[in-house]
Amino acid sequence: MDNIAGSKSSLTWIVHISVALLVALWLFPTVGLLVSSFRTTDQISSSGWWQSLFPTEQNVTLRTTDPDDEGVQTLVDGVYTITGNLFEEAGAEISVWGSSSRAIDAYTVGETADLGDGETITVQANGDYVWTGNEELSGRGQRVFATAKTPPEFTWANYKRVLFSGSSTDSMAKAFFNTLTVTIPATIIPIVIAAFAAYALAWMDFPGRAILIALVVGLLVVPLQLALIPLLRLHLNIGIGKGYLGVWLAHTGFGLPLAIYLLRNYMVGLPRDIIENAKVDGATDFQIFTKIILPLSFPALASFAIFQFLWTWNDLLVAKVFLIDATGQTTVMTNQIVELLGTRGGNWEILATAAFVSIAVPLAVFFAMQKYLVRGLLAGSVK
Rank of each mutant, 00 (worst) to 15 (best):
S358V: 03
V192D: 05
S167K: 04
G166H: 10
P257E: 09
V182T: 03
G118T: 10
S381C: 01
L86F: 05
A24N: 03
L340C: 02
T169G: 09
T64D: 08
N314H: 01
T334I: 00
V162R: 05
T334R: 00
A125L: 03
G345E: 08
S37F: 06
D315M: 02
V216Q: 06
K8D: 05
F367L: 13
A20P: 09
S297Y: 08
R39G: 10
V162Y: 11
T150V: 13
G246L: 03
S45M: 13
Y199E: 03
T330L: 09
K291A: 11
T108A: 08
S45W: 07
F145H: 12
N134H: 07
P271T: 06
Q225T: 12
Q225S: 14
T61A: 06
F87E: 11
W313R: 01
Q329C: 02
R272N: 13
L201E: 11
L316S: 00
W26E: 11
P185R: 03
V76H: 06
T252L: 02
L163R: 07
V332M: 09
G71W: 02
S165I: 00
S99F: 01
G6Q: 04
Q308N: 11
P190H: 01
L378A: 13
W49G: 13
P230E: 10
A90E: 15
R264F: 00
K279V: 04
L373R: 14
F145Q: 06
I188T: 06
P271D: 07
V31C: 10
L220T: 04
K371T: 04
G141W: 03
W348I: 05
K371I: 00
R233S: 09
V321N: 09
V247P: 13
F309A: 02
G255H: 06
G32Y: 07
V182M: 03
M172L: 11
D105Y: 06
V144C: 11
K149I: 08
Y107A: 05
K160P: 04
L341Y: 12
M1I: 02
Q142D: 05
F38R: 12
P271H: 07
S95R: 14
L115E: 14
T12V: 11
G269I: 00
I359V: 08
I94D: 12
S297G: 07
F289L: 14
W26S: 15
V79S: 01
F304H: 14
D170G: 02
S47M: 07
K160V: 00
I193G: 11
A202F: 01
D105S: 15
I337N: 06
S45D: 14
I188Y: 05
F164S: 08
D128Q: 03
N335I: 04
E93R: 12
S167V: 02
Y80K: 07
V216F: 12
V268E: 09
Q329T: 08
V162D: 13
Q124M: 13
S9W: 03
I359G: 03
W26Y: 10
I14D: 08
A90N: 10
V23F: 09
F177D: 12
T284Y: 07
F367R: 09
